[in-house]
């Protein structure tokens, strides 16, 4: 009798704590998850852009998921410059061929990977983009070359619906 009682208490104590912990977790998770993107935000996941009016050497900026997307029609020199860079020189090595499937068109998020500012076109030491916030320089392929940003500007999922229309997302 005397050694049976504590065991029963221990069991009840552990079981109650366990149920309490599961219950607390079940309440905490909805409270945390409600802050994640909601259904209406997720519904705006793709955008179609008509690029027929963009001339070589020009960039248009469109808004996708609240972020600017750069669509640049690159000149021959820019493509050549981007493709002739050796991988060893890059901070975040990526081939231009992988970033721009169609070499004439560079599509990427116009968001500096440092702290999220919008870099300026045709600026910086590498003829690509320059971020005015903390001084990151990007090349004609949108790759980081100098400054505090850790990665190249991100290439989103996109496809050419037809010759003149790009679908982002």
């Amino acid at each position: 009798m005397s050694d049976k009682k504590p065991k029963r208490r221990e069991f009840l104590f552990t079981a109650t704590t366990a149920v309490g912990a599961v219950g607390a977790a079940a309440v905490v998770w909805p409270m945390v998850d409600q802050m994640n993107p909601d259904a209406s935000v997720k519904a705006l996941a793709s955008t179609e852009v008509d690029v027929s009016s963009v001339k070589p050497g020009n960039t248009i900026t469109v808004l996708w998921r609240g972020k600017p997307v750069f669509i640049r029609r690159r000149t021959k020199e820019e493509i050549e410059e981007a493709r002739s860079v050796k991988m060893e020189e890059l901070i975040h090595p990526e081939k231009d061929e992988d970033r721009a499937k169609n070499p004439e068109w560079l599509v990427m998020l116009g968001v500096c990977t440092h702290l999220g500012c919008v870099p300026l076109n045709d600026k910086g030491d590498y003829n690509g983009w320059f971020c005015p916030c903390h001084g990151s320089h990007y090349d004609t392929s949108g790759r980081i070359r100098k400054g505090p940003a850790p990665w190249n500007m991100e290439v989103p999922k996109y496809e050419f619906v037809n010759a003149n229309t790009i679908k982002i997302g």
């Binding site: 945390v32 802050m35 994640n36 993107p37 935000v41 998921r65 609240g66 702290l115 999220g116 500012c117």
Partner: peptide, 25 residues
Amino acid sequence: TVITNLFSAIPFVGEGIVTWLWGGY
């Protein structure tokens, strides 16, 4: 934008945390 992006510096989970803080993209 800049201050919330500070959290993206956290390895692996950083981007997820920033999206969570924003409640969007």
